[in-house]
Amino acid sequence: MTIQRPVTIVMIEDDDGHARLIEKNIRRAGVCNDIRHFASGTAAVEHLFNGESIEERPILVLLDLNLPDMSGTDILARIKADPRMRRAPVVVLTTTDDQREIQRCYDLGCNVYITKPVSYESFAQAIRQLGLFLSVMQIPEAP
C-alpha cells in the first residue's frame, strides 16, 4: 500500500538534536514526506489550530511529551478533542517509558507510543519501524 495523498509530518520536538536524529532516521527509512518541525508547544498549537487548513493536507503528528512550555499530553488531548483533527494519527515519541504515562497517552487517543532509547541502534530501529508504520498506515481523508 502506498500513501495516496502526501501526508505532512508535524514534528513537535523541543530538542533540536532529537529532531534532527528523528528526521535523519525517517529519511533513512525511505520516507520522503514533508516534515514540519516545531520546537515549542505554542508554535505547534498555533500551526495546528490556526494555520493552514487540515482539509488541504492530511497530517501525522510526531509528539514529544516533555515540552518546556506545555505538556505534550495537553496537545494530544486537544487534537483528539477537535472534530476535524481527531482522526489524525499521533505518534508519541518521547524519553518517558513510564507505564502510567504510556497508558494515559493511549487513553487520550494516541495511536503509537515510541520510547526514545538512548542506544542509538534501538533508536534508529524504532524510527525505521515508524517509517514502516508510516508506509503501511492508511491516513484517513479529512472529512
Partner: peptide, 21 residues
C-alpha cells in the same frame, strides 16, 4: 527525580545518536 531522569536522558539520546552519526 522523575524530571531529572527524563531531562538527563534527553541529551544522552543526542550524544548517542550523534556519536552514531
Amino acid at each position: 527525580a522523575y524530571i531529572v531522569g527524563h531531562d538527563l536522558r534527553a541529551p544522552l539520546v543526542n550524544i548517542m545518536g550523534f556519536t552514531s552519526e
